[in-house]
Amino acid sequence: MAVRWLSAFLDFSHEDFSNEVTFWRAIAGSTVSPARGAHREFASLEPFNGDPHLRVQRVDSGDGGVHLDLHVDDVSESVSHATTLGATIVSKNPEVVVLHSPGGFSFCLVPWHGESERSRPIRWPGDTISIIDQLCIDVPAAGFDTECDFWAALTTWPWRQGISPEFRNLRRPPEMPLRVLLQRVGSDHIGGHLDLASTHPEEEVARHEGWGATVVEHHRFWTVMADPIGRRYCITHRNPRSGNLSG
């Protein structure tokens, strides 16, 4: 199975969809594509250059969350591969198969339509450069090793140890727009969040606060933020072009 492209999907409730798309469009420095889908429930956050890797969806129930789309040449073959590795099928239609990882994280296998050009980071006033470039899967400790091995086998990208024992990341090919990070957490519920790489995190935090985000907590290399409805994400001190830690 060859993963040709990755997309992170932000899933929003009906009530929050419009305001949340406005917030995430603003901090990504993107425009929004025309709505698509049977109920106009999907859209892409379009970068000013390159192919989109951030997408939004209006969901019928629940508060939403974040999931990963893997774009592949042959969906049926990839589904067989994923289920052999321990994934379970949630739903199918001709364009998308929704699955759960062994730990229960939602992801989709979708056809590849030729996406290949990574978008470049945005340069903001004040000379800060940033990009939303990472999806972090937050994994309960008991299933952490199994989940890391599953994603490495599914993508064929080996995992490597992060800056501390609770982090591992997949070695993505250079053309991939998203990094995949796995974090061992104390919760018993698997989840996920997006990470943003920035050259000047303090300035980035201030800009996000101006759009309605709030600071949850500071760490050495990252700041945990909450968007206007409380959805958490991180502003990280990483090189926006390479994805590597800075400082």
Rank of each mutant, 00 (worst) to 15 (best):
V3W: 12
V3C: 11
W5N: 00
W5I: 04
A8H: 05
F9R: 00
F9C: 06
F9M: 06
F9A: 06
D11T: 01
F12N: 03
F12T: 00
S13W: 07
E15K: 06
S18K: 02
E20R: 09
W24E: 01
G29R: 00
V32G: 02
P34S: 09
R36P: 01
A38K: 05
H39F: 12
H39W: 06
H39D: 12
A43S: 12
N49I: 14
N49V: 15
L54M: 06
L54G: 09
V56R: 02
V56W: 02
V56Q: 04
Q57E: 14
R58H: 03
R58C: 13
S61T: 14
G62M: 04
G64H: 02
H67V: 11
L68N: 05
V72N: 03
D73R: 02
V75D: 02
V75K: 00
S76L: 02
S76P: 01
E77V: 08
E77S: 12
H81S: 07
I89H: 02
E95S: 14
E95I: 10
L99P: 08
P102A: 06
F105N: 06
S106M: 12
S106D: 14
C108S: 13
C108V: 11
V110K: 02
V110I: 15
E117R: 09
I122Y: 01
W124T: 10
W124D: 07
P125S: 13
P125M: 06
P125L: 10
G126L: 06
G126T: 12
D127W: 11
D127N: 14
T128D: 15
I129P: 05
S130A: 15
I131L: 14
I131H: 11
I137A: 09
D138M: 06
V139P: 09
A141W: 08
G143V: 15
E147H: 10
C148Q: 07
A153M: 03
A153W: 00
L154R: 03
T155H: 03
T156P: 00
T156M: 04
W157T: 02
P158V: 12
W159N: 06
W159Y: 14
R160V: 15
Q161C: 08
I163W: 12
I163G: 12
P165M: 03
F167L: 11
L170Y: 06
R171H: 10
R172S: 15
P174Q: 07
E175G: 10
P177F: 15
V180G: 08
V180E: 04
V180T: 07
G186K: 10
S187I: 05
G191P: 06
G191Y: 07
D195E: 10
S198H: 04
E202A: 15
E202F: 11
E202L: 14
E203R: 08
V205W: 00
A206R: 08
H208D: 01
E209P: 02
G212V: 13
G212C: 13
A213H: 09
V215Q: 02
V215A: 07
V216R: 01
P228F: 10
I229K: 08
G230R: 03
I235Y: 03
H237E: 01
H237R: 11
N239P: 05
P240Y: 12
G243F: 08
S246D: 11
